[in-house]
Each structure stands twice: as C-alpha cells, then as structure tokens.
Amino acid sequence: MTYVIDPPAQASVAVNGSDDRFPVRRIFCVGRNYAAHAREMGKDPDRDLPFFFTKPADAVLDDAQTMPYPPETENLHYEAELIVAIGKAGANISEDDALDHVWGYAIGNDLTRRDLQLQAREQGRPWDWGKAFDNSAVIGPLHSVDKVGHLERGAIRLTVNGETKQDSDLAALIWKVPEVISILSHSIALAPGDLIMTGTPEGVGPLVEGDVCRVEIEGLGAIETKIGPKV
C-alpha cells in the first residue's frame, strides 16, 4: 500500500524498565471522578453515569520533557491522574472481566487550558480546545500489571516547585477502574493501545513558565514536567 502523503509517526509512551514503547491508539478521559474535585469545579458529584472526553494520541508527552506554554491561554492547569493502558480488545465488558483487559498503569498529568474549557462549558460547546491541544497528555512510563498488580488504592500527589498542590488517594475515585472500563466499552469497543485517564483529585491550579510540576502515585514512582516559554 502507498499513501498520498507520508503517514504520521506512531504515537507511543515509554515502558518502565525497557527500551520498548507502548503504541497509543486513543486517549479517553473521565470527567470529574473525584468528589472534592467536582465540588471545586462547581458541580455536585453523584452516581449518574460518568462522562468522557478525548485527547488525540499525539498529544502525549513523555516524562522529564519541557512542555512549551501553549497558545491561546492565560490559565494552564495541572491535573494529576492514574493512567490505565488497555492491552486486550473488548466490547460490552463486564466489571468482573474488566481488569483482564488492562496491560498496565502509569502516572499522568491532564494539562488543561482552563479558561478555554470553562468558556466552552458556559457556551454549551465541546471541551476540545481546552483539553485536546499539543503536549496536553503527559504520561510517564507504563508499568505492566505483571509487575505492579492492579492499583485500587495508594497516594496520588502533585507538587509545583516542591509545594504540594494535590494530595489524595486512588481509593477516592468515584468510579473505579473496572467500572470505568465496563461503562466505556458499552459505548466504544476498546482496543490494544487505548489509554484511559481516570480523573484528577481536588487542588487543581495554574502553571506558569519556569514551573516544575511533579506527580507521584504510590507504587509507580514519579514524573516531572517543566513548563517552557509560550509558543
């Protein structure tokens, strides 16, 4: 097969302890999956079905990279998140079987142009320009389930220049990983290479040029991102 233009490079993320990389197919994100974060965003958490938004695969940015401050925003925010990597295809997956589809876990940072997101929300428009921009999905090395097991609890923290901004536990997720996978798979058939960003705790806030943002999840280590000059 030939193409009329050169096909784009395959987006991928690192694999812990290996030179291999994990190919990224799609990135699904869960909105407001910690109760305290939902409240700080002006919403009341409840047990209605969770909602999802997406980021393009090539929005991924590796650990220890400088992220240029993005255009068209004056309010770039951090959001610490647990990342789930899908390694087995499936649709209409039951909660009991959901974890069988997980290849591994990673630390993530869902960078957000908050001013654009809130403007879109107020106007009833999609969040894409606030969430799905270049380098907006910082994702650290993936840890395989074979090595770390499944993460149901454990500290999740974020610091900016050494100052703690987010400090919670994975156990505080409203919708747990098996539930998220099951619900998502009833709308979209999941495939190997799909990533799920599971939501952020309370304490989200701004980043400016020169900041160093560090995210830690118990059992997965830590990742760091420096914010560079505006592009």
Rank of each mutant, 00 (worst) to 15 (best):
T2P: 00
D6W: 08
P8F: 15
P8N: 15
A9P: 04
A11L: 10
R21M: 01
F22V: 07
V24N: 04
V30S: 00
A36W: 10
H37L: 08
A38R: 07
M41C: 13
G42P: 05
D44R: 15
R47N: 12
P50A: 05
F53V: 03
F53D: 05
K55C: 01
L61V: 07
D62R: 12
D63P: 05
Y69G: 05
P71I: 08
N75G: 09
L76S: 09
H77P: 02
Y78E: 02
A80L: 00
L82I: 07
A85E: 05
I86V: 13
G87M: 06
A89Q: 08
G90L: 05
A91S: 11
N92E: 12
S94V: 10
D100S: 09
V102R: 04
W103S: 12
Y105I: 14
I107P: 04
I107D: 00
I107W: 04
L111D: 02
L111N: 01
L111G: 00
R113C: 03
D115K: 15
L116F: 10
L116H: 08
L118H: 11
P126R: 15
W127L: 06
F133T: 02
F133Q: 09
D134F: 02
N135T: 11
G140Q: 05
S144M: 13
S144D: 14
S144R: 13
V148M: 12
V148D: 10
G149V: 04
K165L: 11
K165R: 14
D167H: 13
S168C: 09
S185Q: 03
S185R: 03
L190S: 03
D194C: 14
G199M: 06
G205P: 01
G205R: 06
P206H: 11
L207F: 06
G210N: 06
G210F: 05
D211W: 03
V215Y: 01
E218A: 14
L220H: 08
L220P: 08
A222H: 09
K226S: 04
I227F: 06
K230W: 10
